[in-house]
């Protein structure tokens, strides 16, 4: 493990060595206190399904890793919310709370759903494979264009909605 640590540590980012701020246009920027990087902050979660407050990679425009925030609580309080908001924008997924219709035609399903952002319609190919089951209760639906929709809780769906997707989950 020690050998691994020395080669694969990456650069830990904490409240000590980085400062986040919002540009006048509302985009997240970062400055490392040692001056090695300053500019737009591109964030990626290493475990987007399970750990949304940990292992946040900070990248530059070319997707090269600048460092990793082990957990958001390592950051200064005011930075934490900025990072959270930026992650919210990047990982935004409409949340389905009601399935209005779900029709299958030859393996392709058409969905009409109600989400927290309003009614949406989309098409899913290869339905069984396009559902990402994150836990027993939570899943993501991927449509043909790669858009994702989240069902936060299967149990919380009303009976009619649940019976429509029962076969696929």
């Amino acid at each position: 493990m020690n050998a691994l640590n020395s080669v694969a540590q990456g650069r830990p980012l904490t409240g000590e060595n980085c400062r986040f701020s919002l540009s006048p246009q509302g985009l997240l920027t970062v400055a490392l206190t040692d001056g090695s990087y300053s500019g737009r902050a591109y964030l990626s979660l290493a475990f987007p399904f399970q750990l949304t407050e940990e292992y946040v990679a900070l990248q530059n425009e070319d997707k090269e890793e600048i460092g990793m925030i082990r957990r958001l609580s390592d950051l200064r309080e005011e930075d934490r919310d900025l990072v959270r908001d930026a992650l919210k924008i990047k990982y935004f997924t409409p949340k389905i709370y009601k399935i209005l219709t779900l029709t299958e035609r030859f393996g392709t399903t058409r969905w009409a759903v109600e989400t927290d952002k309003g009614k949406m319609n989309f098409v899913v190919k290869d339905t069984y494979k396009s559902l990402i089951r994150v836990s027993a209760d939570r899943l993501f639906v991927c449509d043909i264009d790669g858009c994702r929709y989240e069902i936060e809780s299967l149990k919380a769906l009303d009976r009619r909605s649940y019976s429509k997707i029962e076969l696929y989950v």
Partner: peptide, 29 residues
């Protein structure tokens, strides 16, 4: 185009700073 998880952010690189032009879903990618 900056790729987000369920969409795209169209960003204009201006002198000095970046400006968000619009957000769209992957249907428009």
């Amino acid at each position: 185009c900056e790729e987000l998880i369920t969409g795209i952010r169209l960003v204009a690189r201006c002198d000095g700073e970046d400006r968000v032009l619009l957000y769209a879903t992957n249907h428009c990618s």
